[in-house]
Design a protein around this nucleic acid. Structure first.
Lengths: 237, 237
DNA sequence: CCAAAAAAGATTGCATACGATTTTTGTGCA
DNA sequence: TGCACAAAAATCGTATGCAATCTTTTTTGG
């Protein structure tokens, strides 16, 4: 089974229109850092790009705005979100609150098939860590996020799963903005440990490992205010 | 200060259009049970009711769909959500996971002014409990939800605050659907205890009280499958 | 009289059009 | 040259129109 199917099965079953598809593609582009924070996403441009009218492009942008991935300003347009350090802290505070509980819930429901899916996911992560280059790094961040989404889907709570989709997407933005370089390798080993705890049915351990994992991710960020954030803002960048 | 200002200040500051206002009014109506679950909300009807075009009515309905308060079916329209018992369980599982943490966060940041706001909120709750009749009961449910939203706003995490807005709104729907009658009175005393713990700075106690409070609310629900849910579904009700 | 098919009606999905607001460009004056 | 102001272009907010889809009613055959 494809990982994407797992992740989006809950929402896509009731897929209402093309806007959803456009939202997914744009979200991938944002999470993959192909669209840099601050990039303007004009309705017309998005519309012509995907060959739809402004109406549906607008709907897609509105969805992304709800998820916090784009910021919209009245009469000015939509921009890829540029999360502040404070927002970044709130994203990770939310994850520290939610994900240990998700680990426990998943631990109580995990099946052999799930474990196999986790193993496949870990393999994929490992592949991208071995490679070098910006594309591999993008794929690595995305694969790391997919691990957390897979865990959320195993937990079996559609509401928490959606919350996690939002938090993981925003985390990717934050990591892209504030992350230092040689980070995520340790994340991979921690993922492996968590899967091991799940497999052994040690829910308390899985929860604690998850909490530490999130702490490590956040500790690798540099959330000090940058030299010219006011300037960047002023330049509408 | 009005409680509504507190609750919506985070989102309404960037109010982009009339759709947001319509969403708020519809949400209030749903939470207050003036709009029964399953009620059809046609774009045209909403539009004429608020004197806007279908375009903006549609946007408002889309927002509510994201919050899980309305369910939209392609080419059929939008309906006030009719949460299943399973959905209800997920809502409360999410709250059990999130709200104790919110209580701790709020406990660490609460100010004297916040305490005063809590007292005012408790007074308002008490007023509606004393009264009788369906309107008072609606107001009681709403006031009870506002307590939790006030706590979330004090916690100072905009992301968690938005999650709580959604969870509280959906809880109101669930309580309206599955709640037994003489319930919420005990909720009021528990709210009072929580505020007391906050005032004393006993964060652990506040967190534990909150967890028990949520358990009590859920315990007062009757989540057994009803006589004819399939029938109701079949009748498009 | 009932069941199935066909037509009519209502509602949504989407595209386009137009006024309003913002941003950019161009021009005249100090 | 530099700045203020105005015109032009671009973009957004919203209304409306048309085709597609779904629902309901009517018609028709058994």
């Amino acid at each position: 089974m494809n990982i994407a199917d797992q992740i989006y099965s809950a929402t896509d079953s009731a897929t209402q229109d093309r806007a959803q598809a456009i939202r997914d593609q744009l979200r991938d582009a944002i999470v993959d850092r192909r669209l840099a924070p601050g990039t303007k996403l004009s309705e017309g441009e998005v519309g012509t790009l995907f060959d739809v009218s402004r109406t549906v492009a607008r709907a897609a942008l509105q969805m992304l705005s709800f998820e916090g991935l784009v910021r919209t300003e009245r009469n000015r347009g939509a921009f890829v979100a540029n999360p502040s350090p404070e927002e970044a802290r709130q994203v990770f505070a939310s994850r520290r609150l939610i994900e240990p509980g998700i680990a426990i819930a998943a631990c109580g429901r995990v099946t052999a098939a799930d474990i196999a899916a986790f193993r496949a996911q870990l393999d994929e992560e490992g592949r991208f860590i071995a490679e070098r280059g910006p594309n591999a790094r993008r794929a690595e961040i995305k694969a790391s996020g997919d691990f957390h989404l897979l865990l959320a889907s195993v937990a079996g709570n559609a509401i928490l799963q959606r919350f996690m989709e939002e938090l993981v997407a925003r985390s990717s933005l934050v990591i892209a903005l504030y992350g230092r370089s040689g980070v995520s390798a340790c994340g991979h080993s921690e993922h492996t440990e968590i899967v091991g705890a799940l497999e052994n049915g040690d829910c308390g351990l899985a929860s604690r490992l998850m909490l530490h994992h999130i702490d490590h991710i956040e500790a690798d960020l540099d959330l000090r205010v940058r030299a010219g954030p006011a300037l960047r803002e002023a330049l509408n960048f």
